[in-house]
């Protein structure tokens, strides 16, 4: 039984890593359609990764080993995080080992290394991007934690596995606090993945870029790993959102049919939400950087309101 569990764990890991660029491609296609452009093929991100893996790596003379290590560390962090979230089945050996607070820690470990490596070479853009990234993330993290605390106090557990099964055990119920937390989570998702109200993933305009400014120094396979880790991060946030707010379809049993059904539902949710993300990005405008604290303050407010409402209404 445990062997099957570990096999499924490995399967989910591989699925997550392979699926992540596809999700990026899917969102990209929808963005192109909505902007009346001709869309790139769905497998474009894979081609990009393939191309980058075959290019040689150029590293600045002043770079320390930190710059070399960071891409691997980043990819490792994201890969580990992806294995901790129940995507298809809840009974994963690793999902029970770590709770959501450690998960936030893993994400911020990756972020800290990326920011440090960006400042490593000493170019103006790198440290500019790192500072902006830290500004955004130190405001987004409390909001994310409050969202987690809301869902955790609803289910009396900080383990993702029990959060998912707790909802399934209780059936349909309207939680006002969960709706608030969901909106807050969406806002954090947009901010943390460098999506449009906060950062534009497609531009290299120096006045606005955050994430792109940090990774200007990378090339070749290092850049490929960072891009891949970035795609993986989007997939992680999506499946976190599914686990917390749309947990239907996730299965507890290890029957073949159940797993297949859960897998199809997971892919369906990704398809719909990926398109939804593109729509959301198209209808909203990029904000000035100095408006970002206000935006993330609103997310924090919503999350705090969610937890307060839970204690008032749930009592």
């Amino acid at each position: 039984m445990t062997l099957v569990n570990w096999l499924l764990q490995g399967g989910q890991e591989i699925l997550g890593i392979l699926l992540a660029p596809l999700l990026m491609g899917w969102v990209g296609i929808w963005r192109a359609w909505l902007q009346n452009r001709q869309a790139p093929p769905l497998i474009q991100p894979y081609r990009q990764l393939f191309k980058l893996f075959h290019k040689e790596v150029v590293i600045a003379e002043t770079a320390s080993p930190l710059l070399r290590v960071t891409p691997y560390l980043l990819f490792g962090c994201m890969g580990l995080t992806a294995s901790l979230i129940p995507m298809v089945i809840t009974d994963l050996p690793l999902a029970g080992a770590v709770d959501v607070i450690a998960l936030v820690g893993l994400l911020s470990l990756a972020r800290v290394f990326l920011a440090l490596a960006a400042m490593d070479v000493g170019t103006a853009f790198g440290s500019l991007g790192a500072r902006r990234e830290m500004l955004v993330s130190f405001l987004a993290e409390p909001a994310l934690l409050m969202v987690f605390f809301t869902v955790a106090s609803l289910n009396a557990s900080t383990s993702l596995r029990f959060m998912v099964t707790g909802f399934a055990a209780r059936g349909f119920y309207l939680y006002p606090s969960l709706a608030f937390a969901g909106v807050a989570f969406l806002m954090v998702l947009l901010a943390e993945n460098g999506r449009i109200p906060v950062d534009n993933p497609e531009t290299h305009l120096e006045l606005t870029m955050i994430h792109e400014a940090m990774i200007l120094e990378y090339s070749g396979r290092h850049l490929a790993l960072i891009e891949w880790a970035n795609a993986l991060k989007l997939l992680i946030y999506f499946s976190l959102g599914f686990a917390l707010f749309l947990p239907f379809g996730l299965t507890d049993s290890l029957q073949g049919w159940e797993i297949l059904r859960a897998l199809i539902l997971f892919l369906l949710k990704l398809t719909v939400m990926g398109a939804g993300l593109a729509v959301l990005e198209t209808i909203s405008a990029k904000q000035r950087l100095f408006r970002v604290p206000e935006y993330l303050g609103t997310a924090f407010l919503l999350a705090v309101l969610a937890i307060l409402l839970h204690y008032l209404l749930g009592s």
Binding site: L174, P176, A179, L302, L305
Partner: peptide
């Protein structure tokens, strides 16, 4: 539903 409406009012 009532709780939800009240929460929306607060929002």
């Amino acid at each position: 539903l009532l709780d939800l409406f009240a929460s929306l009012l607060l929002l």
